[in-house]
Amino acid sequence: NMECRVCGDKASGFHYGVHACEGCKGFFRRTIRMKLEYEKCERSCKIQKKNRNKCQYCRFQKCLALGMSHNAIRF
């Protein structure tokens, strides 16, 4: 039983190089595919399941810091 490295929810698998839940997987995919840019935040918000949708900037930064990558495809 793995935990999502981004928000701590139950991970659904290994997505983009990191154990992640469906919510964070979809969030990362949409951000990359649609080339979304979020308003910069300096607060280093703590991303948890209950508040993961509050600060998209910090959520995406955490995805990147954990090594999530669009190129991380498993063979």
Rank of each mutant, 00 (worst) to 15 (best):
N1H: 08
N1Q: 07
N1A: 08
M2T: 08
M2C: 10
M2F: 05
M2I: 11
M2P: 03
E3N: 10
E3F: 10
C4E: 04
C4I: 00
C4M: 04
C4Q: 02
R5C: 09
R5W: 09
V6S: 00
V6Q: 00
V6Y: 02
C7I: 01
C7G: 04
C7S: 04
C7K: 03
G8L: 03
G8Q: 07
G8A: 05
G8T: 04
G8K: 04
G8Y: 05
G8F: 02
D9S: 08
D9G: 08
D9Y: 04
D9L: 03
D9P: 00
D9I: 06
K10V: 12
A11V: 06
S12N: 10
S12Y: 09
S12G: 06
S12V: 07
S12T: 11
G13L: 04
F14L: 14
F14P: 09
F14T: 13
H15N: 06
H15P: 07
H15R: 03
H15G: 06
H15W: 13
Y16V: 06
Y16H: 09
Y16D: 15
Y16Q: 11
G17E: 07
G17T: 04
V18C: 09
V18T: 07
V18Q: 05
V18L: 07
V18A: 09
V18W: 02
V18F: 04
H19C: 13
H19T: 13
H19V: 10
H19M: 14
H19D: 15
A20P: 01
A20L: 09
A20S: 08
A20M: 04
A20G: 01
C21V: 03
C21M: 00
C21F: 00
C21D: 01
E22Q: 06
E22S: 05
E22V: 06
G23A: 13
G23Q: 12
G23K: 11
G23R: 08
G23C: 14
C24R: 01
C24I: 04
C24L: 02
C24E: 00
C24W: 02
K25M: 15
K25Q: 11
G26K: 13
G26N: 13
G26E: 15
G26C: 09
G26D: 14
G26W: 08
G26P: 00
F27T: 02
F27G: 01
F27Q: 00
F27S: 03
F28V: 04
R29V: 14
R29D: 15
R29Q: 15
R29Y: 10
R30Q: 13
R30A: 05
R30K: 10
R30C: 06
R30I: 06
T31E: 00
T31V: 05
T31Q: 01
T31S: 11
T31W: 03
T31D: 03
I32H: 05
I32R: 04
I32V: 14
R33I: 14
R33G: 11
R33Y: 12
R33L: 14
M34Q: 15
M34R: 08
M34V: 03
K35A: 11
K35M: 10
K35V: 06
L36V: 12
L36Y: 11
L36T: 09
L36K: 08
L36M: 11
E37I: 10
E37K: 11
E37G: 06
Y38G: 02
E39R: 07
E39V: 10
E39L: 07
E39A: 11
E39Q: 10
K40G: 04
K40Q: 11
K40D: 05
K40V: 13
K40A: 09
K40F: 13
C41S: 00
C41T: 06
E42T: 09
E42L: 08
R43Q: 14
R43K: 14
R43F: 14
R43H: 10
R43A: 10
R43T: 08
R43L: 13
R43P: 08
R43C: 09
S44I: 07
S44H: 14
S44C: 08
S44A: 11
S44V: 10
C45L: 02
C45Y: 05
C45D: 00
C45V: 01
K46G: 08
K46R: 11
I47L: 09
K49S: 08
K49M: 10
K49F: 11
K49L: 13
K50P: 10
K50H: 08
K50F: 14
K50E: 14
N51V: 08
N51C: 04
N51M: 11
N51R: 05
N51K: 07
R52L: 10
R52D: 14
N53I: 11
N53H: 09
K54Y: 15
K54T: 12
K54D: 12
K54W: 11
C55E: 00
C55S: 01
Q56C: 12
Q56Y: 09
Q56T: 06
Y57T: 02
Y57S: 05
C58M: 03
C58V: 00
C58G: 01
C58P: 00
R59F: 11
R59K: 08
R59V: 04
F60A: 00
F60M: 10
F60T: 04
Q61M: 10
Q61L: 05
Q61A: 10
Q61R: 06
K62A: 11
K62F: 05
K62N: 05
K62P: 01
K62M: 06
K62V: 04
K62C: 04
C63L: 04
C63P: 02
C63Q: 02
C63N: 00
L64D: 01
L64E: 05
L64S: 03
L64V: 12
L64G: 01
A65T: 10
A65H: 06
A65M: 12
L66N: 12
L66K: 12
L66V: 14
L66E: 14
G67F: 04
G67D: 05
G67E: 04
G67H: 02
G67P: 04
G67W: 03
G67C: 04
M68K: 02
M68P: 03
M68R: 02
M68C: 00
S69E: 13
H70E: 15
N71R: 07
N71S: 13
N71V: 06
N71T: 10
A72V: 07
A72G: 13
A72S: 13
A72R: 07
A72T: 07
A72H: 13
I73D: 14
I73H: 12
I73P: 15
R74Q: 15
R74A: 14
R74I: 12
R74N: 12
F75E: 14
F75N: 12
F75Q: 15
F75V: 13
F75K: 15
